[in-house]
Nucleic acid binder design. Sequence first.
RNA 1: GUGGGUGUAGCUCAGUUGGUUAGAGCGCUGGAUUGUGGAUCCGGAGGUCGCGGGUUCGAAACCCGUCACUCACCCCA
Length: 420
Amino acid sequence: MIKGIKGVKDLLPEETPRWRLIEEKARFWASTFGFHEIRVPIFEVTTLFARSIGASTDIVEKEMYTFQDRDGTSLTLRPEGTAGTVRAYIEHNRAADPLPQKYCYLGPMFRHERPQAGRLRQFHQFGVESFGMADPRADVETIALLWQLLSDLRLPALTLEINNLGYTSDREAYRPVLVAYLRQQESQLCANCVRRIETNPLRVLDCKVPACRAATDAAPTLAGSMAEPATTYFSKVLEGLQAIGIPYQLNHRLVRGLDYYCLTTFEVTTTSLGAQNAVGAGGRYDGLVETLDGPKTPAVGFAVGIERISMMLPESLTPPSVGDKTVYVAAFGERAALQGLKILQDLRLAGVRAVTDFRSATLKAHLRQADRFTCRYTLILGDDELNKGSAILRNMQTKDQVDLPLSTLVASLLPQVLTS
RNA sequence: GUGGGUGUAGCUCAGUUGGUUAGAGCGCUGGAUUGUGGAUCCGGAGGUCGCGGGUUCGAAACCCGUCACUCACCCCA
């Protein structure tokens, strides 16, 4: 038996309605906040991701699905959505159009990791990118959309954590201070963090190992060595969040795994998801467009994981089954069977959801199927009815039955079904 | 990449210190009821016990290997 690939899941019909609900809400709120959908390819040249995400990040170092095209070009299945969106923005010279421009996207992403609860090799993200506004209120607007979407979906136990990464110059000023401190604590740190002192000292602050936590509790903070413009900017972001009533929690350890973030960075976590507790995350990335050879363009965005949202979605929000507006056509007997096929077609073309089972040859078998499909109505048509020129409409809940003339069948049936 | 747990019917799971032909519930299917569903009763189908090797008179069970799934580390959505 050929099986699916590790970490790649089928979405069976039982699950697609809840996904569609999430997608519809995402598109609705994005549109309401002024974002427009963009669809970009799921694979790009490898260098796009290497340059944008950062060559020394885990994603680029060991998690990308990279392969050679027939001409030898190195291609990569996208591990996230921002790089492709920015590439499209630059390639189509959107910067020449009036700013700001706000985009959203929805689709599969690929990372070669060991699967676990809430983590897959093909997973799906909904994300937004807001280009052109170097204004704290643009950060607030983006966070507001994220928060509204998750709130509207009634996800439980959410926390918005937020941090200020400052400008590049702030991090450059902070780095030697932090490294000096970490060197003193080196014996307390885990092997991973000892290595990170060189490669990415900021990430040590985000380590989950308790010993590392304790060792860095008293570490000098980035905020401590941050210059004026960045602190003012961040306080305005917080001010904006307060103004529109979005609760947040400062987390100075919050360091995102992608190199392109600056200033505001945020993450929405939950306690109801197991170890993978991030539902969505994002931040500001003012340098990225320029890094990818576009014009200097400030930008901010976020992405949420659809699988993780789906796992948290309360049962009460999942759409009810569609059976109650469905008519089951129970046609049986030599001549009625063919007439039933025609009625089925007429109903469908008139916009009525109609089903049947062509294998069923008896009324009993038909009714059993109607019941299984949880249809509210069954249209009974045997040779007896055909001779009388009528059909029986049976309400499956009340067992009420009425005769309907075949000549005006669809018209007389429509109001009953649609108002039920 | 590292570690733990679990692999028995479509699904959820029993299966005694190793002992005859591997079980249950649900689901599926047929009948009781040849023109009226759900409930009930009766019957039926469905298994390479993940796979390969080993120990043994005898293995679903014990040992080794392997694969898959899963949770966690790492990292992230």
